[in-house]
């Protein structure tokens, strides 16, 4: 398998990366066989930068994040190859204790379903305070004060009164704010947000994304935003990595990819979403189904669904071709895709 560095270390991104994932492979050993969930993913995130990882269910976008956080269910999931360099140190070779120190303090995660990610029998104040007691050894009183301060920061109204309430007493949007507060508690350098607003209503989604973007700027954190929503990506991302069947098929700065996608999958996705500003004609539909990870097609995994597929696509897996100093595409026909 060939994989080149995703974000070419070109002129556009000079500083050293905060996170550097190199040729990551993850597989799930199930009863029915080995599901190859991640097959050679590489990406980098720099401080104060937002990388959006876009993909459908089964594309491997969440599994990659779990591997980075070290919260992969193992077994059945195993990292079989690759490096995850965080501030230059490989997380995969660290021992459990070192890794635990990095997690939470240096990198944190925000989940889609805030209700199940919060402990239902502990007040939100105690859950926030626990972070300071465990990681920073603060006293109960000081940590509670810090918890209130955090709740204020994520703009939960009447934080002082609500600090003793339980997760179910908050609305969906407020719970997601609490999740953000927990992620921010130890001022991490990297936040991974896995579909943070998918479960929320449109108007609340806007509030939460705005808050997240603002806090990211304030703390100059790196942010990995995992989503399937092309709209959310366009709103906040600096860079995009599009994933399909466990591989990155295209990476690009956000402005270029929406105008001129360099991979037929990205192109198909963009053509298939209905528009808000006009009624539009019949939607383009990508034919077929995402592949079964137990039996990924040989060659380019997208070839059975791709209208541009040629004989070579069924035999040779495309490497990530450099499209420009800042863009790459895993399509043999990226030039045709870009021009057509």
């Amino acid at each position: 398998m060939t994989t080149t560095e995703v974000s070419a270390e070109g002129t556009a991104r000079p500083s050293a990366p905060l996170l550097d994932v190199r040729d990551l492979h993850v597989e799930f050993r199930t009863r029915d066989g080995v599901a190859r969930a991640v097959n050679g993913v590489s990406y980098t995130v720099k401080a104060a930068e937002t990388l959006a990882v876009l993909g459908e269910s089964g594309s491997g976008k969440s599994v990659t994040a779990q591997a980075i956080m070290g919260i992969l269910d193992s077994p059945p999931g195993f990292v079989t190859k690759g490096e995850i360099l965080f501030q230059g140190r490989d997380l995969l070779t660290m021992n459990a204790e070192e890794r635990r120190k990095v997690r939470g303090a240096k990198m944190a995660m925000i989940f889609q379903d805030a209700l199940s990610a919060l402990n239902p029998v502990m007040s939100v104040g105690d859950q926030l305070a626990e972070m300071f007691i465990v990681h920073e050894g603060l006293s109960r009183k000081d940590s509670k004060a810090k918890a209130i301060e955090l709740m204020d920061r994520v703009r939960i109204p009447a934080a002082r009164e609500r600090v003793g309430q339980y997760p179910h007493q908050f609305s969906g949007g407020m719970r997601q704010r609490i999740m953000i507060a927990m992620a921010l508690a130890l001022e991490p350098e990297l936040i991974i947000a896995d579909e943070p607003t998918t479960a929320l209503d449109v108007t609340v989604q806007a509030q939460v994304m705005e808050l997240l973007a603002e806090l990211q700027r304030e703390y100059s954190m790196g942010l990995i935003l995992i989503t399937h929503d092309l709209g959310v990506v366009a709103d906040v991302a600096d860079y995009i990595a599009v994933m399909y069947a466990g591989r990155i098929v295209e990476t690009s700065p956000v402005h270029d990819i929406y105008r001129r996608p360099a991979h037929p999958y990205t192109k198909g996705l963009l053509a298939s979403i209905p528009r808000l500003d006009q009624k539009g004609q019949e939607l383009y539909a990508i034919k077929g189904l995402p592949p079964n990870l137990l039996h990924i097609p040989p060659g380019c995994a997208f070839n059975p669904r791709c209208p541009m597929a040629q004989a070579v696509c069924r035999t040779d897996e495309p490497p990530l071709y450099d499209v420009s100093p800042t863009r790459a595409s895993a399509c043999h026909f990226w030039k045709e895709c870009l021009d057509g």
Partner: peptide
């Protein structure tokens, strides 16, 4: 509030 798939 709808996120629009157009960064511009």
């Amino acid at each position: 509030a709808v996120p629009v798939p157009d960064p511009d």
